[in-house]
Write a protein that binds this DNA or RNA. Sequence first.
DNA 1: AGCACA
Length: 499
Amino acid sequence: MSTSTQHQFRYTQTPSKVLHLRNLPWECTDDELVELCRPFGKIVNTKCNVGANRNQAFVEFADLNQAISMVSYYASSSEPAQVRGKTVYIQYSNRHEIVNNKSPGDVPGNVLLVTIEGVEAGDVSIDVIHLVFSAFGFVHKIATFEKTAGFQVGEFVNRTSFDVSLPVLTLCFCLQALIQYTDADTAAAARNALDGRSIPRYLLPEHVGACHLRISYSAHRDLNIKFQSNRSRDYTNPMLPVNHTAIDGALQPVVGPDGKKIEPESNVLLASIENMQYAVTVDVLHTVFSAFGTVQKIAIFEKNGQTQALIQYPDVTTAATAKEALEGHCIYDGGYCKLHLTYSRHTDLNVKAFSDKSRDYTVPQVPAVPWQNPQAGPMYPGTAPALQGQVLGGQMLSWDPAQQTATPSYVSAPGTYPSHTYAAPPTPAYPTAAASSPIAQSNPLVHNASSMGITQPGIPLNVNLQPGGASPSVPASSPLMQASPIAGASPPAHQPYFS
DNA sequence: AGCACA
C-alpha cells in the first residue's frame, strides 16, 4: 500500500461539522457555497478562496449531522455536487471549526456600526441618520456616541446599554452610530449602498464639511435603548420614556434663571484660540497655563477651522483660577492668539503622551538623554534637531536648528519639570533681561498673570524670555519677529525649560 | 482535486 493511498484516508476518517470543498471554480463566492450546502442544514460560517488556486473552501454547519447528511448524500449520489457546472469534491475537514481572519466588523449582522468622520454629536442629528438609513428598511433602533479617532479601534462591544454618558475624549471628533435593522440582509444592503459615501450636504449644518460614512457590522444583535433622546432612539417602542435632559442638553446649553449659560465647572479647560497668526504649540500652552498650577495634559485640535485646546489641571480650583486670569487675553501682543476659555465636559483626557498635538505630563516622557537629569523628564534633547523640528511642527521654518546647540542654556532647572513647582525660580540669571524685555512689557498675559496676584514664583512667560527677547537666528523679515514674543523667542526658549 | 488562520 502506497503512502498516497494512506493519505487518502487521512482526511476522511472523522466526521466534522466543517466540510472541506475542493475543485471549486476560481474565486467561488460565499453565496455559491451557501446555495450548495444550505439544503443539508444551517450554515454558521464559511471560508472560501482558500489555497493557492483559491478554489477550495470550508463550510461549517451548525450541527454535525447536517454535515454528515451532505457527505452521505453526495457519496451515494449519481449527480456530483456542482458549482457553476464544475464538480465539487466534499469531505470532512480535519478541523472542527472555521476560524477565519475576518475582523469582527466584517462578520455580517443586523446591526451596523457607522462611523461619521469629522463630525461630533451636535453636527448630525439622529433624525438625519434615521432618514438616511431608513431608505433600506425599517430602522429599529439607533444609538450614537462620540468617539476618539485613534483612541480605540472598533466599538465598545462590552457596552450593553446606551444613553449613559461615557467620558471619552473626542480629540479628533467623529460620531458613531449603531443602526439596528430587522435582519442582516437589510443591514448589508445599507452597508453596500452607503459605505464610503457621504451624507448629503443639505441635511447637514452649513459649517460641517464632507463627512464620510464608514460602515462595518456590529457584534450587537439587539441594542438596549433606555430613553428616546438626542443620542438614542427605539422606533419599535414609542412608549419609551423621553430623556428631555439629554435632548435639551445637547441642542442648547443649560440656561440658568438669569438666562445666562450655566457651565458646569471642570478641571479641564477648553481654550479656543482666535486670530491665531502665530503657531501655538503644546509647549506654548504649557508655559502659559502652568502659571496657575500643574498642567497634567494638553491636547490641541482643530474644530470648524479654529484651533482649540484642552488643558487639564488636577482640580477644578486651579482650572477656575486659570480661566479667570486668562479669559479674553492674548498669548501674543497685538491681539494675536486670543484665548477664550470655557470648562470642558471632559474630566480626564486620554491623549498621546508625546505627540505634535498632545502631551500627557503624568506619564514618563521619552527616554532621557544621558547628560540630562532623568527626573526632569527631558522632552527636548537640545542636541536633536530632528526632534525639535518634529515638535515644532515645521512651523518655525525660518529658524535654523543648528542655532539650537549654539544657544546658551540660560537656566538649568532640573526637577522643575514635570512637578511644576517652580520652587526655585530659574530666572535669577536674567531677571533684568526678562523684566526689561519689550515682550514682558507688552504681553497681556504677563501683566495679567502678575496683576492677578498669582504667587507662584517664576511665571513661565518670564522664564521663557531671553535677553533681547528674540532669537538672532530668526531673520528680521520674519513676521514672527514683529510682535510675537514667544514665537520669536521660542525655539531656543524651550531649552531653558527642559534641558 | 487533498485543509486556512496565528
